[in-house]
Amino acid sequence: MMNDIFHKRKKSLNHLLDLRKPSRVEAKITCPHCKEEVLVRQVKENHKICPKCGFYFPMTPEERILSLADTKSFREQDKKLRTGNPLDFPEYEEKLAANEERTGHMDAVMTGTMMLNGIETAIAVMDGRFLMGSMGTVVGEKIVRITEYAGKKKLPLIIFSASGGARMQEGLFSLMQMAKTSAAVEKFKKDGGLFISVLTNPTTGGVSASFANLGDIIIAEPKALICFAGPRVIEQTIGQKLPKGFQRAEFLLEHGMVDMVTERKDLKEVLYKILKMHR
């Protein structure tokens, strides 16, 4: 069943997340990058970017969708999909429950449809807070479902990735989601669909090495870490110190791996222009 979350979610949560409403509370937050204290209100008004140093705070799926979607146009799909813990992995259920409690989501991706300046589009936004945005069977299934839905309805598809990679607790089932999601976007693209992939901090491992890097057009957020093997793994395996900026969005742009690095304030306009040219 489809849900309009912005109608039905608790009002307080809605208010807190709504970027368009200025926060009345003069609460402060410490920027993890420059360590300066900044006003939550200012961060929100600034597309969740630190007003002091320009650090990109991660966005929740709700915030991301609100920043792009026409008012009340988002319809969530497959909201209630939950993993069956296929390996019967110890302590996994408890972890999931804690993450669900913290994020309000049952797994690490939110999918649905929305209007962007009047253009209907399918959208998936990964939630980096949920077990590091890792991809297991539910993320795989939801990505495939929204991709197949977009194919059936002839909608463009936008996927925002934020992921530490494959979900360890689901073992080889997670690895197989790389095949499943890649196959789905491949089919969608071959059938004429437009797939715009937006890579946000971090997009790594099994997500980076599957659907995320298969976009017809690939956009990266400034300074986002985008890689297969993480910097620590590389330093450990080969005993090399990595150069500054290695595996960041700008580095990938220089190496021809992404089409553009786009600032948050410009993202909606860029997406709109691309969508408009593919109508």
Partner: peptide, 23 residues
């Protein structure tokens, strides 16, 4: 997991193989 491999698009290379094999 090397410096050169990452610079030359390890993620993309793997993703494209998986996608191509699937079809």
């Amino acid at each position: 997991p090397g410096l050169e491999a990452e610079s030359n698009g390890q993620s993309t290379a793997i993703a494209e193989n998986i996608a191509a094999m699937s079809s």
